[in-house]
Amino acid sequence: MSLLNSAAATGSEPVAAVADVSMHYGSLTALDQVSLEFPPGVTGLLGPNGAGKSTLLSLLSTARRPAGGTVTLLGEQATKGAGVRRLRRRIGVLPQHFGFYPRFTVLEFTEYAAWLRKVPAAGRREAAREALRHVQMDRHADRRMGELSGGMLRRVGIAQAMVNKPALVLLDEPTVGLDPAQRVGFRSLIRGLGEQSAVVMSTHLAEDVAHVCDRVAVLLEGTVRFTGTVSELCALPHGDGSADDAPEVDGGSVEAGYLHLAGAEAVGA
């Protein structure tokens, strides 16, 4: 298996894809000719801070346009104008830090997100309530956003990301700042999202990839160094990366596979 090409035959058409995309911030290259496909299920973007993960999510969300290459979403190239605005209505985004008016109630905030994503007025409140039920926050619908704990805020963040029943969900470091019990519950939510949508999750936590993801792409210094199944990543320190070599998938074996790639890069292998 090539470390630069996915060995996982999913049998599903990609919901999103990037081809040879590059992104620069002044003299800094954030992404360098990155090509990836994102089929239904949960795909993890694993890498350290500064690897280009958040930049890639910003391209998939249409918040930014690449300096070079193409971004394809739901079968359409994302360029400018009405087409992009239409695509945005089918995308849900949870930034690592999302803004909110603290005096909004949980229901008001989620309903506001539905309005932003052009959910029809007649069904907007019920869409908000359904999203809150999915994340077990419906009983807190009348609480003020400013009163919520960190874990509760992240749940509301998931609710606002899914209120429009998106085909593509983008999650940027969704479990950062959560305690271990909250992280376990949040992983269950993300797995559930992957049964309905294509989910792309940026993280630097090997445990999240092990417990949540179907596939993983490792980003280092703005380039893709591996794409494949989580089992194939775990197999790298133990064999040639084939499924037959794969050890049991857990946080430690995902981390070992990642460090194998990072270590090889460090010595120029």
Rank of each mutant, 00 (worst) to 15 (best):
T55V: 11
P66T: 01
V119R: 06
L94N: 00
P66A: 05
S54G: 07
V71Q: 15
P102W: 00
Y112C: 06
E126P: 00
L107G: 08
T55S: 15
A67Y: 12
P102C: 04
G47W: 05
S58Y: 10
V106S: 10
T43W: 03
R124M: 09
G92H: 02
T62R: 02
W115R: 15
A131P: 04
R65Q: 14
F100H: 04
N49I: 04
Q77V: 10
A113E: 14
R103E: 14
E108A: 13
G69C: 13
L87S: 05
R129F: 00
G68L: 13
L59S: 01
L57T: 03
F109V: 04
E111C: 01
G52D: 12
K53L: 13
V42F: 00
T72N: 15
V42G: 11
V119A: 08
T70S: 15
T110D: 06
L94V: 04
V71D: 14
F38V: 10
L87T: 01
F109Q: 04
T55P: 07
S58H: 11
L45S: 07
R88N: 08
Y112I: 05
E76S: 08
F38W: 09
N49V: 04
P48M: 08
V119Q: 10
F104S: 07
A113F: 07
A67M: 13
K80G: 07
P39K: 02
P48D: 14
P102V: 05
T110S: 06
L74Q: 15
T79I: 06
V106M: 11
A122L: 05
V106A: 12
V106P: 09
T55I: 10
R124S: 12
T43L: 05
A78K: 02
H97M: 04
A122N: 09
P39A: 13
L46E: 11
